[in-house]
Measured scan of single mutants.
Amino acid sequence: TLFEALYDYEARTEDDLSFHKGEKFQILNSSEGDWWEVRSLTTGETGYIPSPYLAPV
């Protein structure tokens, strides 16, 4: 399942991933609570992002 960003987000740590509203992601790991490890389909980068900022496509 692909997810889309509902809002912009600016990374706060080196493990976070900055992204823009509308960017699409592949979920790599969603078992860590509200922070999911994802791969951006736009940039190819991986990192953690807050799951409340995402919605299924």
Rank of each mutant, 00 (worst) to 15 (best):
W36F: 06
L17W: 07
T13V: 08
G47V: 03
L2K: 04
E10H: 11
E32H: 13
F25T: 00
L54Y: 03
Y7G: 07
E23M: 07
F19R: 00
G22M: 02
E32A: 13
F3H: 05
A55F: 09
E37H: 14
P56G: 05
S18E: 03
Q26R: 08
E14T: 12
A55K: 13
L28P: 00
E10L: 11
S31L: 10
S40F: 04
A55Y: 10
A55E: 07
G33S: 12
S18N: 06
K21Y: 05
G33N: 11
W35M: 13
Y9C: 06
W35E: 05
V38L: 01
E37I: 13
A11T: 05
I49S: 02
P56M: 09
I27N: 01
A5W: 01
T43P: 00
Y9G: 03
K21P: 02
Y53A: 14
D16Y: 13
T46Y: 07
F19P: 00
D15N: 14
N29Y: 07
V38E: 01
D8N: 09
E10I: 14
F19L: 04
K24L: 15
Y9E: 01
I49V: 15
V38G: 06
E10N: 10
K21Q: 08
G33W: 10
W36G: 00
W36M: 05
E10S: 11
L17T: 04
Y9V: 04
T43W: 02
D34T: 12
Y9M: 04
Y9H: 07
P50F: 15
Y7L: 10
R12Y: 09
E4K: 07
T46N: 05
K24Q: 13
P50Y: 15
A55V: 13
Q26D: 06
Q26P: 00
P50C: 14
L41G: 01
A11R: 09
D8Q: 04
L6E: 03
Y9P: 01
E32S: 13
E10G: 06
T46K: 09
P56W: 06
P56H: 06
T42V: 10
Y48T: 08
F19G: 01
R39I: 10
F19T: 04
P56F: 07
K21G: 02
I27F: 10
Y48I: 09
L28M: 07
Y53E: 02
R12C: 13
T42H: 10
T46D: 03
D16M: 14
A55W: 09
S30R: 12
E10V: 14
D8Y: 04
F19W: 05
L6I: 10
R12W: 08
H20M: 12
E10W: 09
E14N: 12
G22R: 02
H20F: 13
G33T: 13
G33Y: 09
H20G: 08
T43M: 01
P50V: 03
N29P: 02
L41H: 05
S31K: 11
Y53Q: 03
I49K: 00
V57H: 07
T42S: 13
E14Q: 11
L17H: 03
S18H: 06
T42M: 10
P56L: 09
V57A: 08
R12K: 13
P50W: 15
F25Y: 01
S18I: 04
D8I: 02
L2E: 06
N29V: 07
S51C: 10
E14P: 13
A5M: 03
F3T: 02
S40C: 06
E37T: 08
G44W: 06
D34K: 09
D34C: 15
E37V: 12
Q26G: 02
F3A: 05
A55N: 07
E14L: 11
R39N: 02
W36T: 03
D34V: 12
Y9I: 03
E37N: 08
G47D: 00
D34H: 11
Y48L: 11
L41I: 10
W35L: 11
L41E: 07
S18G: 07
G33V: 10
S18C: 05
G47F: 07
A5R: 00
E10D: 10
Y7T: 08
Y9T: 01
L28D: 00
S30Q: 12
L2T: 09
I49W: 00
P52C: 15
E10A: 11
P56D: 05
L17A: 03
S51H: 08
S51T: 07
L54H: 03
I27P: 01
Y9D: 01
P56E: 09
Y9F: 08
I27G: 01
T1N: 11
S51Y: 12
D16P: 02
P56I: 08
G33D: 11
T43Q: 01
S18Y: 04
W35G: 03
T43I: 01
T13C: 14
E4R: 07
L2Q: 06
E10P: 05
P52F: 15
L2A: 05
E4L: 09
T43L: 01
G47H: 06
E4W: 10
K21N: 03
F25W: 01
E37Q: 13
W36Q: 02
E14Y: 10
T46P: 01
D15Q: 14
F25I: 01
T1H: 11
E32T: 12
P56K: 06
D8E: 07
Y53I: 06
E45W: 10
Y48N: 06
G33K: 12
F3S: 01
R39Q: 08
F25M: 03
S40W: 02
E32R: 15
Y9W: 08
Y9L: 04
E4M: 13
P50S: 08
D15V: 14
E32Y: 12
E45Q: 14
S40Y: 03
V57N: 05
A5T: 04
F3Q: 02
G44N: 08
L2R: 04
E4S: 06
N29D: 11
S30K: 13
Q26I: 15
S51L: 05
D34N: 09
L28W: 02
A5G: 02
F19M: 08
P50H: 14
G47I: 03
D34Q: 11
R39T: 06
S40I: 06
E45A: 14
F25N: 00
P52N: 15
G47P: 00
E4Q: 10
P56Y: 06
D16F: 14
F19S: 02
E23F: 04
V57M: 09
P52Y: 15
L2I: 15
F19E: 00
E45R: 15
E23G: 02
S51G: 10
R12E: 12
G22S: 04
V38S: 01
F3K: 01
E45V: 11
L54Q: 03
L2H: 06
D8A: 07
S18D: 04
D34P: 09
I49T: 03
K21E: 05
K24V: 14
S18F: 04
T13L: 10
E37M: 14
E45S: 10
G44F: 07
Y48V: 08
E23T: 07
I27M: 06
S40P: 00
G33E: 12
H20A: 11
K24A: 05
G47W: 04
F25V: 02
L54I: 10
I49G: 04
S51K: 11
F19Q: 01
E45P: 00
G47C: 04
W35N: 07
T43A: 01
Y7M: 12
F25R: 00
S30A: 13
T1Q: 14
L6T: 06
S18P: 05
L41N: 03
N29Q: 07
T46W: 07
A5P: 00
T43Y: 02
S30I: 10
P52G: 15
T13P: 05
P50E: 07
E45N: 12
K24H: 09
R39P: 00
I49H: 01
E32M: 14
G22C: 04
D15K: 15
D8L: 03
T1W: 13
N29F: 07
D34Y: 15
L17E: 01
N29G: 10
P50I: 05
T1R: 11
L17C: 04
F25A: 00
T46H: 09
W35T: 08
A11P: 05
W36D: 00
E10R: 11
E45H: 12
L6Q: 07
D16Q: 15
G22D: 02
F3G: 03
G44R: 03
P50R: 13
G22I: 00
P56T: 06
E10M: 13
R12S: 12
I27E: 00
E14W: 09
